[in-house]
Design a protein around this nucleic acid. Structure first.
Lengths: 333, 333
DNA sequence: GTCCAGGGTGGAATCGATTTCCGAGCCGGT
DNA sequence: ACCGGCTCGGAAATCGATTCCACCCTGGAC
């Protein structure tokens, strides 16, 4: 393995000079600099980032800890983070916590021991401890998608409550009266906000909040499927459904397809968060679209800002959601 | 920041002993060990992985360089890699090359400078140079999904040619005669193999290979859309389509929907690689399913094996594909 | 009682880069 | 000719862990 000393010897300078040329902080005689760069090329030298990071006691890596790699929302978001990271000279390490608090803790511990420059996380639990751990260790953190109570942290969210309210109101306006809701895990702020939006829309419309029409699942496809099945089996007779995330919407739809319930004739459906290729699904799905990529970008920008100014005020960004009406929620005349 | 020396001082032992306790390689007096562990807990010590990696000149990180995070095939595969990595004591760093050879080169360079323990890559070009670079530096590499000519490397593939042949033959058997093909970038082995399978099936059936029915796109949704549009606009009059990957299938379908071409009545469709929620798409899509998760697992296992035995023989694993017939390819009677 | 084997421990070197500190050389002004 | 100030290069310290090596101590063999 060729080290900086080999380069120095080959170029007839000291290791310090090689380092200076490589990092370009201070002035170096152009002649020497030229000798150094050509020696680097000739020997095929690549600097050892581990040694470098140790000495500088910081890295150029961001850990992005997301709760589900297979959810298109998160992958789109990661793209947004990546684009910011690259322009700011950082690389992104993607960690998949799989909605599992234990895996999440492990990744956080790893981020600390690996001296990551910063962490962007969508917490899968509302344990504040882990995030606190990072902050106490001086590691900048940005929380995305889900709000964390208790410790002030830079956060990027979408307007979940308003989105859910729009979706539900839309169903009301279409004339649906028995609007069921498949909510997410109660400990996630996204789930509670979306449920709250649903509730608000119902009361605003003067409709009762019927517990028989409520189910809470796990934000996964299978959970959505089972919640829908239970709604149908228990005879709650919903005429419409609001599902609180994309995967559960899909699961619910699959259940409806399997049981030959026509959408929207028998049951109208609105989902939260868009679904790839929503146009190919029949009927096309009405969804509350979230600016996933933009969430990632904003989180990236927040992190770069905090890296530059560790003591800046804590920021909380809320991005708007948008109701995209398609066929699945329209009242057939 | 608390270091191993702080722990040593607090526990009244030497740093060497602390290290021995932490790593558990050699025997340490249980009394001392106990003192060390409680000091670690009390001081909240976390070992500095950067320093550790420098000294041991190896890390416990795998870089997984995939060509598109937003393609469900790759995310499923990553899950497979992850599961193996975790049990083997490694962490996975996911890098998204975005089918961009330059980004890919950057990630490879980063993997080298960061002293990654190993790399799993789905190359977005057929430049062997980059992969050679890794191997020359002694960094174990496993190539997945796409074959790389020229240098022997552990590889995990699926049986692309056979899968494509099955798909095309199926269309032939359904009575279609003007079967179009939207292929992928010619420099990717997946694209050429799938095209080859298509070609073989046609000649086996005694059908001509009509250039008017051929398009080559970029494995992306937009590319599939445009290829389909061009097939329709140029009056090639296909009665069926074989699309060489999932995203292009979706793009083509979107084009067909937009132009009111009924599937399969006007044009039958078979896609390579499955699509999430294929059951919700109308008509349901016939696809060649790949064992994405299993590809990842096998790649992970190959990597652990090579890490254990750097000189083991090069392995090439080919996993089977499977035709899943759904509505989009059936001849309506 | 002496010697030897061997487990357990601490001191110090080491990994490969960065960065501080200091001295050498050069320039222009007096 | 001398001096102050400035630029640039090199020697050496440093980051925080691991690990080699030397030493001590204990117990068993003779």
């Amino acid at each position: 393995m060729v080290t900086i000393y080999d380069v120095a010897r080959h170029a007839g300078v000291s290791a310090a000079t090689v380092s200076r040329v490589l990092n370009g902080h201070t002035q170096v005689d152009p002649t020497l600099a030229e000798r150094v760069t050509s020696s680097v090329a000739e020997l095929g030298y690549r600097r050892n980032a581990v040694a470098r990071n140790l000495r500088r006691s910081r890295t150029t890596l961001w850990a992005v800890i997301i709760s589900d790699v297979e959810n298109p929302f998160f992958t789109a978001m990661v793209r947004g983070v990546e684009d910011i990271a690259l322009t700011a000279g950082y690389s992104v390490v993607l960690c998949n916590s799989d909605e599992n608090p234990e895996k999440e803790s492990n990744y956080i511990a790893a981020a600390l021991t690996e001296q990551m420059a910063g962490v962007i996380i969508s917490p899968s639990s509302n344990r504040v401890d882990d995030v606190k751990l990072l902050q106490d260790a001086g590691c900048p953190v940005v929380v995305i998608d889900r709000e964390l109570q208790g410790s002030p942290t830079d956060t990027v969210l979408v307007d979940n409550e308003h989105g859910a309210e729009l979706a539900t109101t839309h169903l009301v306006e279409q004339g649906y009266r028995r609007i069921a809701c498949i909510g997410g895990p109660r400990w996630l702020s996204t789930a509670t906000s979306r449920y709250e939006g649903y509730r608000r829309a119902l009361t605003a419309a003067g409709l009762p909040l019927d517990p028989a029409l409520l189910r809470f699942a796990d934000f996964r496809e299978r959970g959505g499927y089972e919640a829908m099945a239970s709604l149908l089996d228990d005879g709650a007779e919903p005429d419409a459904l609001f599902a609180a995330n994309n995967l559960m919407t899909v699961g619910a739809m699959e259940c409806l397809v399997q049981r030959d319930r026509a959408v929207p004739a028998d049951i109208a459906v609105v989902g939260f968060d868009s679904i790839p290729w929503a146009d190919l699904i029949r009927p096309t799905l009405t969804t509350v679209a979230q600016p996933a990529y933009e969430v990632g970008r904003q989180a990236g920008q927040l992190l770069t800002r905090r890296l530059a100014k560790p003591d800046a005020d804590v920021t909380r960004i809320v991005l708007p959601t948008q109701l995209q009406v398609r066929a699945s929620s329209l009242r057939l005349s």
